[in-house]
Amino acid sequence: MSDEPKTGPFGLNPTRIMILLMGALVLLISIGMFLGGPNSYQALRDASNAAKEPTAEQLSGD
């Protein structure tokens, strides 16, 4: 008889914890790629700031 407790089929052990962490990392990377990454966010901020200032056409009154 061994003294190790039975964890059942869904019990966590170091191998399963590592697999869960790797899956979470893949999920995080996938969401980041789907949303466009940091470069798209910077482009969106630049476009937002540019939209707050009037263009040359708007200043000339045409």
Rank of each mutant, 00 (worst) to 15 (best):
L44E: 07
L21K: 08
S40Q: 14
M1G: 10
L20M: 12
P14G: 03
G23K: 00
P38I: 10
S60G: 00
G11S: 11
G32N: 15
S48A: 11
N49C: 04
D62L: 15
K6Y: 14
R45S: 05
S30D: 00
S2H: 12
S60H: 11
P14Y: 04
D3L: 12
G36S: 04
P14R: 07
A43C: 01
P5R: 07
T7L: 11
S30Q: 01
F10S: 05
S48M: 11
S40W: 15
V26H: 00
S30N: 03
L59Y: 02
G11R: 09
R16P: 00
A56M: 04
D62S: 13
E53T: 08
Y41A: 13
I31Y: 06
K6G: 09
P9S: 09
S40D: 12
L28Y: 02
P5C: 01
S60Y: 06
S30T: 11
S48I: 04
P5K: 08
L12V: 06
N49M: 09
F34W: 15
Y41I: 14
T7F: 09
L21T: 07
G32P: 00
S30H: 02
L35I: 14
T7K: 11
R16V: 05
D62V: 14
R16C: 06
F10H: 07
A43M: 13
E4V: 15
L20I: 10
G32A: 10
G32S: 08
P54L: 05
G36D: 08
T7N: 01
A51P: 03
S48E: 13
G11F: 10
G8Q: 04
E53S: 07
L35N: 10
F34E: 07
Q58P: 02
G23R: 01
Q58D: 03
P54Q: 11
E53N: 10
D62K: 15
L59N: 02
M18Q: 09
I31D: 01
L28N: 01
G37S: 01
A51K: 08
G32M: 10
G11Y: 07
A50F: 11
R45Y: 10
I31E: 03
I17K: 15
E4D: 12
I19G: 02
I29V: 12
M18V: 08
Y41W: 13
E4T: 13
M33H: 04
P14W: 09
A47M: 06
P5G: 04
G36C: 02
G37C: 06
L35T: 13
S48Y: 14
F10M: 11
F34Q: 12
T55S: 13
E4M: 06
L59H: 02
A24P: 02
A24M: 11
S30P: 01
T55F: 02
R45M: 14
S2Q: 06
L12A: 10
R45A: 10
P9E: 12
T7H: 06
S40P: 01
S2F: 09
A47H: 07
E53H: 12
Q58K: 05
T15M: 07
L27G: 14
L59T: 04
M22V: 11
V26C: 07
K6V: 13
M18H: 03
Y41L: 14
G32E: 06
L25V: 05
G36V: 03
F34P: 00
K52T: 05
N13I: 14
Q58G: 00
